[in-house]
Every structure is written in C-alpha cells, then in structure tokens.
Amino acid sequence: MSHNSLGPSAETSAARLHRIASHDGLVLAVDDLGPLDAPVVILLHGGGQTRHSWSGAAKALAQRGYRVVNVDLRGHGESEWSEAGAYSLDDRVADLEAIVAKLDRPFALVGASLGGATSIHAVAQAMRPASLVLVDIVPHPEPEGISRIVTFMRAHTEGFATLDEAVDAVAAYNPERPRPRDPNGLMRNLRQREDGRLYWHWDPRIVAARPQDLHDMVRQSAAKLPQIGVPVLLVRGLKSDVVSDAGVAAFRALVPDLEVADVGGAGHMVAGDRNDAFNDAVTAFLERHLPAG
C-alpha cells in the first residue's frame, strides 16, 4: 500500500489497495483492479455503503477490460473520518479530484445515491468524464425514500450487542431481501469498539445535515448537464422508493438525451439486488461511450 499512488503493479486480476490523501489530508481507501493501461471506471457507493457493495460489478468491469477504481467515500468503510465533520458535496468532489489527478486515462463515473449526487456535482464543477452513470438517484428524488435511508443511518447510535441484532436492523429496513445464510459478511459494515459493541462503519455526522440541502445543491448542479453534454445513463430499480416515474420524467425534461435502464426486481440497492442485470446495462452503455478495447 502507498499514499498518493495509483501506480503500476504486476497484478491486474486482483484488487490493489491504495491510500490517497485528499485536499484536507483525509486519507481514502481505494481499490484498483483490471488492466493498468485501460480506460478507467470510478465507482462511488451510496451513503451507508462501502466499496465492497460494488464487488460483483468491479470484477465484471475488469473482466470486460476496464481498469476499475473503487472508493470508500470519506467517513465510510476503511477511509478516514473527518475530524472537522467535513462531509459536504464540495468535500466529496475534492476527494474525487484527488483520485482523478492520479490517472492518465479517460474515465467514466458510476455513482449510486450519494455517489451519484457527488458525480453530478463534480461534472458541474468542471470535471469531464467520458460518461456518467447514475444509480437510483435523480435531481428530484422521492422525499419518503430519502427519509427512510436517513432514518436508518441515524438509528442505532448505541451500537449492537450481537451480529444478529445488526442483521435484524437490516432486515427491518429491507424486508424483501432474503436474510443472508452467513451473516458474517455484514461484519464488513461494522466495527467493534472497546466496549465490545458493534457499530456501523460510517461517521454519524454524515447524516447530521438536512437532506433537503444536499438535494437542492444537486438540482442546481444537474441544471448544468445539458450544456456540458456528458452522456448520462440512469439505472433505477423498479421497486425503488427513491426514484419514481415522475422523478425520471423531470430528469429527462432537463436532459433530453438521458438514457434510462429499468431493472426489474431491484430496489434502491440496484447492484446488490440484481447484479447481473445491473452489470449488463452499465457495460453496454460504457462500451458505446468509453470502449475498453
């Protein structure tokens, strides 16, 4: 592992873990896999997730010939928490800029939920990816769906006494997803502290601000997309409570060339719910706008 590097490695099939310092010194955990000389796909997960939520998609994209850069957003996973509580979209765009600065190939952005909001804001702030994939996020999301996510992330600040308690909390949030046969995989999203209890991996201050403020900023940034002309694909879960038909229509009115891939049987966590269908939609779009070969 090395700081401030996405440099060469003999490995291209396994993920290479890097540590990259952002503008304020906060260190991000970044996986890098696939051919080093290929076009790059940067994966940005949603709030409350980690880079491991992209595991299937990252491997599939690397197998298609892309170099994949998979990031733990600040305050999540193995990336550091901000001592100053700096979790604005501007801070997240600065993180993305620090990563892009290490690359010397054209790149695409694939952002889910919070990662998608970050991607929209980055393009509005002069970042120029070859293409942009937004996963179940639009400038006008459904308030009820956003509220459900934020409520979940604000809950259980006292942690969990056992792994089963954490599994129960996830099941209550997403009752339609089957309970895992092996709950130990959830430990990637938990941290055991000195008191012996298990806590979610994210900094609670991430959800301290009003969601409405973030989405107001996303709407302002999205208004610039038509003039910029970056190709945009929206991948949405047809069972999502965050992206509705009205939200899609409003986005298409703003960006007439918007492409939409509807994934049946998937909710807000599209890649996790229907990974194969998600991968097919994203790779088909990328191969038209950022060919791997």
Rank of each mutant, 00 (worst) to 15 (best):
V40D: 12
A126C: 14
R181N: 05
A266T: 01
S55T: 15
Q192V: 13
D104N: 14
G46S: 11
N275T: 15
S113H: 01
M187T: 13
A101D: 07
L114V: 01
A281W: 04
N275K: 14
D136S: 09
G115R: 05
K239W: 03
E97P: 02
R274N: 11
T12N: 13
D241G: 00
L44G: 09
E83P: 03
F285E: 03
R92A: 04
H23A: 14
H156D: 15
V30M: 05
H121Q: 08
A250N: 04
S82W: 07
V207G: 08
L163F: 00
G267N: 07
E165V: 14
I137E: 04
T283G: 02
A250E: 10
S5L: 04
D182V: 01
P106G: 03
V230T: 00
L61V: 06
V68Y: 00
A94D: 08
R128Y: 06
H76M: 02
A60P: 03
E287C: 00
R252Y: 03
G115N: 02
L214D: 02
P35L: 05
E80I: 00
Y66T: 03
L103S: 12
A108F: 01
K239Y: 10
D182A: 12
M127R: 08
H289L: 07
L43K: 03
G264E: 14
D203F: 13
Y87F: 05
Q49L: 02
D241Q: 12
L258Y: 05
N279F: 00
A122H: 01
V282Q: 01
P143R: 06
D245E: 14
L6K: 12
A108K: 04
M187S: 14
G237T: 11
A21G: 10
P143L: 05
R193S: 12
D91V: 04
S13L: 13
P143Y: 02
A122I: 09
V100D: 10
V110G: 00
G47Q: 00
E83W: 01
D32G: 07
I149F: 09
D95F: 01
G196S: 00
G75N: 09
L233S: 11
H3D: 12
I149Y: 05
D95T: 04
G145F: 00
A58C: 06
R148P: 09
E176I: 12
A94I: 02
E80S: 05
E80T: 06
T283L: 08
L61A: 02
A29F: 04
A155W: 14
A10G: 15
F107G: 01
Q227R: 13
K224F: 13
A169C: 06
R74G: 11
K102V: 05
F278T: 10
S119F: 10
P226S: 10
A130K: 07
F107V: 02
A21E: 13
F278Q: 06
G196V: 13
P139M: 12
R67P: 00
H121Y: 05
G196R: 11
D273L: 05
E78P: 09
P231H: 13
E144A: 11
G48E: 02
S9K: 08
H23K: 10
A155R: 15
G159L: 09
S221D: 08
P180R: 13
G75P: 04
D182W: 11
L234G: 03
N184V: 12
D257S: 13
E11H: 05
S9T: 09
M127T: 08
P175C: 10
G229V: 06
Q212A: 15
